[in-house]
Simulated scan of single mutants.
Amino acid sequence: MKIEQIIKEKFNSLTKSEKKIANYILESPNHIIYGTMNEIKGAIQVGDATIVRFCQKLGYSGFSDFKIEMAKEDYSQKESLANDNQLFFDQAENKIIDCIQRTKRKMDIKSLKESSELLSNATAIYIFGVGLSGNTAQDLEAMFLRIGIQSKAISDNHFQMQTAALLKETDLVIGISLSGKTQDLFEALGVAKEHNAKIISITNTLVSPVAQISDIVLQTVSEEFFNGASLSGKVSQLYVCDLLVRYHEKLFEKEALSSRVEIIRAVMNKSLD
């Protein structure tokens, strides 16, 4: 049975506060799937206990169980749209194109310019990410190297914390997280902040914990709660990374071109005839 139907069937038995939650879910289901309990509490002005009781009245053990069921239902509905092979290919293509277009609309030259200035002034550059975002951190390290910027990607949280503890105010950390709520990353960036290092975050929302402690936020837009490590989430991150690298290269064209030439020459010397 769909959650929307369950809510409507039980609506009259709910308390006044629980009805506020029900209406909020019916009007903005994505806010539940991609939001936290604190965000939902702030939006409709109810307490933790009220949200938990509401979920239990619908037959779920608590908010997390309810949220997962909503995400599963949403994911299943989207996947069921691809009911033939051609539609299947089109859906995958359109999802990536839409992700890039929406990411593009979130970007602005001012943020790229300020990020480029931090890159230019940094004595050391580190890129922090965990899981999928850890892989993106390594990709960004490789992109930077191509234009002559030496950086270090770190995906292990223990090494992130140790590195952050030794940072100076002239150092730069780039933190990557789609949700902006990854605890390990947030803790490491918090230590970096305590040492006055500059922070650029690549993340979905401006109000996430990671974004809030950053000096500059470059936004991605992928919403993939139930489909972690999806291609669209990865593409959104890589698109932002590419814009950052290309903009910096544009400002420092001569130096970047020289680096590219030297790197290509070195790689060509390793090629077999």
Rank of each mutant, 00 (worst) to 15 (best):
M1L: 12
E4F: 14
I6P: 10
K8Q: 10
E9M: 14
K10W: 00
F11Y: 15
K19E: 15
N23G: 09
I25H: 05
I25E: 13
L26Y: 09
L26Q: 13
E27V: 09
P29G: 09
H31V: 07
I33A: 05
K41D: 11
I44G: 06
Q45F: 06
Q45E: 13
T50K: 07
K57D: 12
F63H: 13
S64H: 11
S64A: 14
E69Q: 15
E73T: 13
N83I: 06
Q86E: 08
Q86I: 07
L87Y: 00
F88T: 11
D90Q: 13
K95Y: 01
Q101M: 06
K104Y: 12
K104G: 02
S111M: 05
S111C: 06
E117A: 02
E117K: 07
A124M: 11
L132Q: 07
A137S: 04
Q138R: 02
Q138Y: 00
D139H: 08
F144L: 05
L145D: 00
R146I: 04
I149D: 00
F159H: 02
Q160R: 01
K168Q: 11
E169G: 05
E169T: 11
T170Y: 00
S177N: 10
S179G: 11
G180E: 12
K181Q: 10
K181V: 12
F186M: 05
E187S: 14
A188R: 03
G190H: 08
G190I: 05
H195C: 11
S201I: 04
S201N: 02
I202A: 04
I202S: 08
I202K: 07
L206Q: 14
V207K: 15
P209G: 10
S214G: 07
V221F: 08
V221E: 03
E224M: 04
L231S: 07
L231I: 04
L231G: 02
S232F: 05
S236M: 01
Q237R: 01
Q237V: 02
Y239M: 06
V240I: 07
C241R: 07
D242E: 11
L243A: 10
L243H: 09
L251E: 01
F252N: 09
E253I: 03
A256Y: 03
I263G: 02
V267H: 12
M268I: 08
N269C: 04
D273G: 04
